[in-house]
Amino acid sequence: MANALPARGTPTSESSPAWRNVLRKAYLFTYLRGWLVWSSYRAQVALTLVGWLVPVFLFFLLAVFLGAAGSSIAALDGDSYVAFFVVGLAYQGFVSNLVGLLAQRIRNEQMMGTLEHVFLSPTSPGAVLAYSSLFGIVLNVTATIVILGVGWGVLGVHFAVSLPTVVLATVLLAVSSTGLGLVAAAFIMWTKQGNPVATFFTLFTQFFAGVLFPVSVLPGAVQFLAYSVPLTFGLNALRSGLLQGGSVASNAAPLLWMAVYALVSVPLGLFLFHATLRRTKVDGTIATY
């Protein structure tokens, strides 16, 4: 029996320190499994770009038709309607995609037959989910920048940016949305078909979160519903930070609420995902779709 294998631990990690393994996985998940696979479907790339921009121009033309394109509106804290919906659409897409991202990733892996092999590896399922979300985050950030860029360069939106507020609000929004994304991932592991959590969230936020019109337009009781999602607080902070140069201190309340959402939704999402993963190991349906 020649060349006996090592007795304990991960038998194949002899050559890399841990941080290098983390960076390598981040790169391979983002570039190989993310970008190369995504960009190989050219029609999908074209349709994604169109999907980012069509709603922006749609609502711009509507605003022009109604004569609300360029004027400052008091109900919108003095912003123009175009500036209001550009920020709303940019971040609503960001959040909706993040919520649906992990569920979609799991479904893709189930259909490609790779899910069992990924979950069989020494990389933990939690880490696999974290790495899997990286490309989606990059793509969503790109979409947000593109929409904001079109708003600035093509539609004439004037930005007065407070970078700390925007970065902090974006990070908190991303983390709290990832928590909901974990809930959606747990749901897809259980139900196999459809993505009801992400679909409901997209429809709900489009209507209630102050994306296309201010929350104050909604009836009083419904306004209460609007503040059940972090995007509503996020858009308040982001519009302030992007359009009026609002500081972190002046946006402390919405930022704090998003932090609370993140602290609740991420552990809840992780718990539900692990519980569902365990259930699929009982009934033998990890790779079933």
């Binding site: 990690s13 290098r20 037959g113 790779t114 069992e116 092999h117």
Partner: peptide, 29 residues
């Protein structure tokens, strides 16, 4: 594990890229 199905790799990646991806999950440089 070697399963009895061919559906266990990413179809849009090359053989090499697939090997690199899965080896990274096992921390192989």
């Amino acid at each position: 594990l070697v399963t009895n199905t061919e559906r266990s790799f990413y179809y849009r990646l090359s053989g090499w890229q697939n090997l690199r991806f899965f080896a990274s999950l096992y921390n192989i440089a």
